[in-house]
């Protein structure tokens, strides 16, 4: 069986700067692949090569076995939203979708029916006849998503579909994405948000500085890396230096940091002995206020893979 998306030894340079370096990646039919990486990792660049907005410096990409240089044929069953595109502000969702539909060969009464379906899918049907220029960012994003759904695509390629949205908008778009799952439909979605990958995808490829550093099944990855977590602890009195020293010597703690007068974090590699930490707190006459796991397991994993300096990129 041919793969949904193949990226073979892809390199893309801008002048002397190499944004994507010898990347190999495969998205199988039916696979939901998250392309995860910090800002500037080369996610958009990869997706742009696949969708014909950039041409590769070397290597190749193909979709359903069709080389992406044959843009017209390769994109026939692909829907994409790359780098927050815009629709004509004077157009209404109906007008945009009927234009896209005509370009894709959807005509006659089937076109109107399809427009209704996709607008229902992204919950924009009631806005169908309002000019897009007046829409909020989230609404615009949903119209561009509707556009990608027009051909009932086998493959969806989405670049940071929730970027720039408020928390509510993010949740809405993620819910829509989950609702798009179909047998044999594949998804390639780039993001720097880990919860997006764990919520929506079943596979993940992590890239950093234009290179793949990991590619795996999401469940498998989480199973292999349990215990790779950071705990965040708040106490009611001041944390002493002796306590911090003791904490750093604690089993499996790879990094400990006093974040505040009354709080500290401890990153574990391997088993995180939470009861032991509570004991340690008590022994140093500290009164425990709260103990939380910081971020998801995937987040800790991601930090250890990409290095602490990219910490600010994570939300």
């Amino acid at each position: 069986m041919t793969n949904a998306i193949d990226v073979n030894a892809l390199t893309k340079s801008f002048g002397s700067f190499t944004a994507v370096h010898n990347v190999n990646m495969t998205v199988k039919k039916g696979e939901y692949m998250g392309l995860l990486g910090p800002n500037g990792a080369g996610k958009s660049t990869m997706l742009k090569v696949i969708t014909g907005m950039l041409s590769p410096t070397s290597g190749s990409t193909s979709v359903n076995g069709i080389d992406c240089r044959d843009h017209r044929r390769a994109m026939e069953t692909v829907g994409c939203v790359i780098e927050t595109p815009e629709c004509y502000p004077n157009f209404t969702p109906t007008e945009v979708l009927s234009y896209v539909g005509k370009l894709r060969g959807i005509t006659g009464p089937g076109l109107n029916a399809r427009i209704r379906e996709v607008l229902d899918e992204v919950r924009m049907w009631e806005w169908r006849d309002k000019p897009i220029g007046k829409f909020s960012k989230g609404m615009k994003q949903r119209v561009t998503l509707a556009q990608a759904l027009m051909p009932d695509p086998d493959i969806l390629i989405l670049d940071e579909p929730t970027s720039g949205l408020d928390p509510r908008g993010m949740v809405e778009v993620r819910e829509i994405l989950k609702g798009l799952k179909r047998d044999n439909r594949s998804l390639l979605v780039s993001t720097h948000m880990l919860n997006e990958v764990s919520e929506v995808c079943n596979s993940v490829t992590v890239i950093r500085r234009g290179q793949v550093i990991l590619s795996d099944n999401v469940k498998e990855l989480l199973r292999k890396n349990t215990g790779n977590v950071t705990l965040e602890v708040y106490v009611r009195n001041s944390i002493t230096q002796e306590f911090m020293d003791a904490l750093r010597r604690f089993d499996n703690v790879v990094a400990a940091e006093r974040t505040d007068e009354n709080s500290f974090t401890a990153r574990f590699s391997g088993n995180d002995d939470r009861e032991g930490i509570v004991e340690l707190v008590k022994r140093h006459d500290l009164k425990l206020f709260s103990l939380n796991q910081k971020g998801s397991d995937l987040e800790s994993l991601y930090l250890s893979l990409t290095g602490e300096e990219d910490k600010d990129d994570i939300r």
């Binding site: 060969g105 029916a113 169908r128």
Partner: peptide, 24 residues
Amino acid sequence: SDEAAIASNDAAHAAVPGRNYKLP
């Protein structure tokens, strides 16, 4: 008339034929 057709076209909505769009 296009939009009217959409609004009144719930029947068509329910019975969309198999999606075999051919590239024009």
